[in-house]
Design a protein around this nucleic acid. Sequence first.
DNA 1: TGCACTTCTATTGTATACAAAATCACCCCG
DNA 2: CGGGGTGATTTTGTATACAATAGAAGTGCA
Lengths: 219, 219
Amino acid sequence: MVDPMMPASETAYQKIRTFILQGEAIPGMQLTEEKLSEISGVSRTPVRDAVRRLENEMLVVRSASKRLFVADWSEGEVDEMFTLRAMLEAHAAARAASRIDDDTLELLHKINTELKDAVNQSSPDVTSFLEANRRFHDLILECAQSPRLNKLMPALVEQPVVRQTAHQYTKTQLNQSAIDHDELIAAFTAKDADWAKSVMTSHIRRAFHSFSMAAVPKP
Amino acid sequence: MVDPMMPASETAYQKIRTFILQGEAIPGMQLTEEKLSEISGVSRTPVRDAVRRLENEMLVVRSASKRLFVADWSEGEVDEMFTLRAMLEAHAAARAASRIDDDTLELLHKINTELKDAVNQSSPDVTSFLEANRRFHDLILECAQSPRLNKLMPALVEQPVVRQTAHQYTKTQLNQSAIDHDELIAAFTAKDADWAKSVMTSHIRRAFHSFSMAAVPKP
DNA sequence: TGCACTTCTATTGTATACAAAATCACCCCG
DNA sequence: CGGGGTGATTTTGTATACAATAGAAGTGCA
């Protein structure tokens, strides 16, 4: 599936990223460049390139003495992340509403159908759900045609804690995402920027509260 | 003033950044790693580190074939940059309003006094103005205590076009900034997040329109 | 002339060796 | 037993050489 002749720095980026997102890495643990080059099978030079990218996504952090660690956030930081993501994705949705074309609308519909299929299994296929969800949001971002927004978003999505708790979501919660997406498509079809913006804001904030409940279940 | 034992990658970062921001670099011109290592006096390895940082600030861009160029934006992109900056800095101001302490308030006041001094010369000292302005906004950002916001902001400030047109601002426009800052301080003193947010939004959007007029003077 | 193909050159990518810096462990002295 | 320093070890930083790739410039053939 992946390009076998991928540059080493890209290999390193993907391997390390997966290592962190899949939860093999413990938040706060140290990552030496040496160790990372073993994990990814390339030398330290491309590893350092990969690490710079991961630093910008805030998946790894650097201590004052330049040592690397797997990121670890407080509850407040996760909250702030969702807040910022809601602001920026809502803005993206508003821009997309003004710029969207019929082909893109159709594609969004197709992706959301796949998302629904992933949910409507006897036990929902969370991996496929996350994959379809990512593609849905990425397409909107692309449609917003804002290079700067594209640069900023990676620092606000795909965080390990969030990914891991996704498996605890109920079918009802996953279905609500599909319903939100349908309403977004309706707003896009009407080319109503305000509507799209509002729906996206609700969508992200609801995701945050679903996450909070899954992460810290009340007894 | 600068640390003489600065790491080479930091030297490279500052030299290249200055090279671009001071307008010695022409938007769209190619930057080879070789050339950059000559400019900064270090080898290509630390240059590559520096370039990664500059890429995130979108001061340099990479073509599909990985060649580097000085960034060059359309009017629409500058507009979008100010819009995003207004959103995020307003959010930062709101957070800061809830968290600010007396020492920080006093410091903000002191910085704004320096800013006013820079403006109230027979011919305003634009360099000092920009310096004080930067410190004022940086302090608010720090006070917002959001690591993520801190990571995002560098991609939205200090753009070459903006810096260069700053020298064309009228004394009235520069003074208006000082007045905005005073009102921000008032909002912070009252710990009124909404007020702070509104003032910051107006402040950034006014700056955008001042910039537009300076950049594209109407006959 | 136009256009494919091939060589050459410019530029980025990677590995490795060594330098610098930070951390750690230990020992000595009080 | 504690504190401070000192040497060893780990880790990051830098330079350099070479490999791989993209772009440019020719070259020959129709």
